[in-house]
Computed example of a mutant assay.
Amino acid sequence: MRDLGLDDSQLRYSADCAPCNPISIITGNGEGPMVQDALWHLYLEPTATGFKPHPRYWSINTNWAQLPKKREFKISRCLIPATSFVESQDGKRPHQLQFEGEAFCFGGLYKRWAHAQTGETVTSASIITLAGHPKLEGIHRKSLPLIFNQHQLADMQQWLNPALTDTTSLQPFLVSQLRLPLTAQPIDKSSSKNPIAEAFVIPADAGQI
């Protein structure tokens, strides 16, 4: 946050950031990055008094293969700060994953909504997921989130740049890779995160720092 010129006291902190709840996202504008609240579910549906997650479109994640069809990929990309994330295989054997000693950001999309009756404006967001990484085959074979590590300041600034609407230069980010060693902790469930076995380290990909 400080590297991006932001005040970390603006962030929401929670030990259990659950889908469809408010989270903090970082967006870009002409004056630089800014922090704002967003609902973790990209597509919303209006109700009589506000918005709710759209029941027909489960959109806490956006698959990388769908990005060319998403207008948000061109005009409203965001970063989602985190310290760890939980993955499981078909809902079983969850693991808490983290880069030891540092936070990171997911790459994501955001969308703004305006309620026709109340005038309320709401921001929503999703995390971009990439193809599965072979080193996580036993934890979550289907996908790996798009992750920017702390040393990727220039990459994060490029991702947030609202003037960058030709996404060709962003394609190298859409490759599943581990730039740093990843610590995997087997846990009982995603909400409580109680360790149930010894943690182990998944090494970084060759050529990464």
Rank of each mutant, 00 (worst) to 15 (best):
27 T>I: 15
28 G>M: 10
28 G>F: 13
30 G>H: 11
31 E>I: 03
32 G>S: 05
32 G>P: 02
34 M>R: 14
35 V>S: 00
35 V>T: 15
36 Q>V: 03
36 Q>N: 09
36 Q>E: 13
37 D>L: 08
37 D>M: 04
38 A>W: 06
39 L>S: 07
39 L>W: 14
39 L>N: 11
40 W>F: 11
40 W>H: 06
44 L>C: 07
46 P>E: 11
46 P>A: 06
47 T>P: 04
49 T>H: 05
49 T>Q: 12
49 T>K: 08
51 F>S: 05
51 F>R: 12
51 F>C: 04
51 F>G: 04
52 K>R: 15
52 K>C: 13
52 K>G: 01
54 H>C: 13
54 H>Q: 11
54 H>G: 01
55 P>Y: 13
57 Y>Q: 14
57 Y>G: 06
59 S>R: 07
59 S>N: 06
60 I>H: 09
60 I>F: 15
60 I>N: 08
60 I>W: 12
61 N>V: 03
62 T>S: 15
62 T>K: 01
62 T>Y: 00
63 N>C: 08
63 N>A: 10
65 A>K: 10
65 A>I: 11
65 A>S: 10
69 K>S: 08
69 K>A: 11
71 R>M: 06
71 R>F: 02
72 E>F: 00
73 F>E: 05
74 K>C: 04
74 K>A: 12
75 I>A: 08
77 R>V: 06
77 R>T: 08
77 R>N: 03
78 C>A: 12
78 C>Y: 00
79 L>R: 03
79 L>P: 05
81 P>C: 13
81 P>K: 09
83 T>C: 13
83 T>A: 14
85 F>E: 10
85 F>G: 02
87 E>D: 06
88 S>P: 02
89 Q>K: 15
90 D>E: 14
93 R>L: 05
93 R>G: 00
93 R>M: 09
95 H>D: 00
95 H>C: 05
95 H>T: 12
96 Q>G: 00
98 Q>P: 01
98 Q>G: 10
99 F>L: 14
100 E>L: 12
100 E>M: 10
101 G>C: 12
101 G>T: 12
104 F>G: 01
104 F>L: 05
104 F>N: 01
104 F>P: 01
104 F>W: 13
105 C>I: 06
108 G>W: 01
108 G>P: 07
108 G>C: 08
109 L>G: 03
110 Y>L: 08
110 Y>R: 07
112 R>Y: 02
112 R>I: 07
114 A>I: 10
115 H>V: 04
119 G>M: 09
121 T>Q: 15
121 T>G: 03
122 V>M: 10
122 V>L: 13
123 T>Q: 06
124 S>I: 15
124 S>K: 03
125 A>S: 15
